[in-house]
């Protein structure tokens, strides 16, 4: 529990989930639904994509495609963190719950905290950290939902602004290479243009094209 309380990222996570709760309220989802999404999906970006695409009238298939593309980044995270938890006796099924908890915050914290945890206790440690963070987020979701319902519009707007701010800044902080920075900037710039086309999959089109251009520039620079 001390690890949960002491991380700065917990504050950012709290702000994000306050925003998710408020967003769910303003797009007319029920509180139970958004809490279930926090437990089952357990990935802030995917939840925001899910809520905002469904809320703006996209079909289930369109929302699912947008969510699954955003979730691809979980794959390299899982691949890189699981070897640190395994021992010779570890079976795959022992890792299922720990794998479910892996999202960007937990992934970063595992790299920071694992060196202090004996290997055979790391799975239990991950479960504890995951359940702790998830409880904090459930509380934040409920609080954000309640605040959006009861606060004057100005403060409600302030809570909704938390989501883009927290995501923009934490993504900017995680940028490791030129391709990440370019993808962020191009992604921000392309969406308003693509949204004029009103395709229903604007996010996918702008995201895949901006990401691919960013990757192309990265390749081109490496060849120079």
């Amino acid at each position: 529990m001390r690890s949960v309380a002491s991380t700065v990222l917990t504050l950012v996570l709290f702000a994000t989930y306050l925003g998710i709760g408020a967003l769910a309220h303003d797009t007319h989802f029920s509180l139970g639904w958004v809490l279930a999404s926090t437990v089952l999906v357990w990935a802030g970006p995917a939840q925001i994509i899910l809520i905002s695409t469904l809320g703006s009238g996209a079909t289930v298939v369109q929302a699912a495609i947008a969510v699954t593309v955003s979730a691809i980044r979980l794959f390299p995270m899982v691949v890189s963190v699981l070897p640190m938890m395994r021992t010779e006796q570890t079976k795959r099924r022992h890792l299922v719950l720990a794998t479910h908890f892996i999202a960007v915050t937990l992934w970063v914290e595992c790299f920071r905290l694992f060196p202090q945890v004996p290997r055979e206790r790391r799975i239990a440690f991950t479960h504890g950290l995951g359940i702790g963070l998830c409880s904090v987020c459930l509380f934040a979701t409920t609080l954000g939902y309640g605040l959006a319902a009861n606060l004057p519009p100005l403060l409600g707007a302030a809570i909704l602004l938390l989501t883009p701010l927290a995501f923009l800044l934490s993504t900017a902080r995680n940028c490791r290479q030129l391709s990440d920075v370019l993808a962020l900037v191009l992604g921000l710039a392309l969406f308003p243009l693509v949204s004029l086309l009103q395709t229903g999959v604007d996010i996918l089109i702008s995201g895949i094209s901006a990401g691919t251009i960013a990757y192309g520039v990265h390749r081109w620079r490496e060849r120079q």
Partner: peptide, 23 residues
């Protein structure tokens, strides 16, 4: 990672350009 980052950037832009609710 570049595509995932750009999709997230698109979501950020969507909330700012086409704001929900009280925003």
């Amino acid at each position: 990672r570049a595509v995932a980052t750009a999709i997230l950037a698109g979501v950020i832009a969507q909330i700012l350009v086409l704001p929900p609710g009280s925003l």
